[in-house]
Design a protein around this nucleic acid. Structure first.
Lengths: 199, 199
DNA sequence: ACCCTACTAGAGCGTTCGCTCTATAATGGA
DNA sequence: TCCATTATAGAGCGAACGCTCTAGTAGGGT
């Protein structure tokens, strides 16, 4: 693992890494501390709320990083459709390269603690909401009504999260590529309908 | 929790219930034994391989039960499209009724242990494969070619798994209903194309 | 009556868990 | 230089972890 940044950053990076492999309950603060080359003292200095607070910060910060990544794809491609397709394909490549590690710790953590840690649940919900918003914006910009845009964007995130699970479980990145095509087609269809309505 | 059946069945039911709430690592054998009104001795009698073997049996048996449930929907509706929509809507109702408990422990467990327990990983992969097969069959039966049918069926399962995560995390069952419509539309489109090609 | 297999029962093993605590360094402003 | 703040360090706490082990019970076959 990369050992860069401040102690706080290293702790979050190590937590994120462990969440990807083993989820929330499978991650021990001892293991995080070792991987981050820090000490328990430092961890409880930066995160007085302990494991839960560390997890919340990890979900928020890595969730925002994923959102930024999608923004990059949006900026570098000609349309939301292409951005979505590129994102799924990029995820597929990353999955293979990482030997099928979980690419999205947020989904894993959310499933584990949604019933027992309300702050962590809302943190994960906020992240998903941000992702949807990122995708909604360019759709509304091309004339799609807000509700349709939101429904489609949400479905794309669902496809992505589900594809992560199936691809990783079956060790077959192809799932991400084919579902990426469906996701892109779903966006393209909404764009087509909106432009047809305007004529 | 319902306390019915043999000791072995009660253990699996209790494990399934705990997996839904807290996942694999968050589930302790002690807690399972108490919920099932059994003892550790009985648990290790039926599952000599311990927690891992108990989890494997739980994934296999509850996974098959979900598959059977979809078969019921297929038998009771006129088309695969309607069965898919009904399944998603039924899941949405069940999610609300259960106060947003996780409806699919398999996805949770798979994400947690795919990197560290190979037998459990393949057990989960088998379950997902069975679900896809269940949905592929009626599509092929109406003339859709095998590859298209498999891709669409896989995408539907991805939508379902992803919708579980988002719906539970945001405590909004509506996600399951709208994605269910997209899933049904995806099936309907393939059916339409196949029948058009046959003319 | 006897025994053999299937199952139940739970005390207790060593380990790891999240976390607290006190002591010690490093840092920067007055 | 002095001190207050910030950060590092790790021994050690009680509790919970997965699991083993021995003892005891239930019930059918002979």
């Amino acid at each position: 693992m990369e050992l860069v940044g401040t102690t706080r950053q290293r702790l979050i990076t190590a937590t994120n890494e462990s969440f990807r492999h083993r989820g929330y309950h499978g991650t021990s603060v001892q293991a995080v501390v070792e991987a981050a080359e820090a000490t328990v003292g430092s961890l409880y200095h930066f995160f007085p709320g302990g494991k839960s607070e560390l997890a919340e910060a990890t979900v928020q910060e890595t969730g925002a990083a994923y959102g930024d990544l999608f923004s990059v794809f949006l900026a570098e491609t000609a349309s939301a459709e292409e951005a979505v397709r590129a994102f799924f394909h990029g995820a597929a490549d990353a999955l293979v390269e990482s030997d099928f590690i979980d690419l999205c710790p947020i989904g894993t953590v959310a499933r584990e603690v949604a019933s027992e840690d309300e702050r962590l649940r809302t943190a994960a919900a906020d992240v998903f909401g941000q992702w949807v918003d990122k995708l909604v914006a360019p759709l509304v910009a091309v004339g799609i009504d807000a509700e349709t845009a939101r429904d489609r964007a949400t479905a794309v995130i669902c496809l992505l999260e589900g594809a992560f699970v199936l691809a990783r479980t079956s060790r077959d990145a192809g799932v991400l590529r084919t579902t990426g095509s469906f996701a892109a087609a779903m966006i393209a269809e909404a764009v087509r309908e909106a432009s047809a309505r305007r004529v």
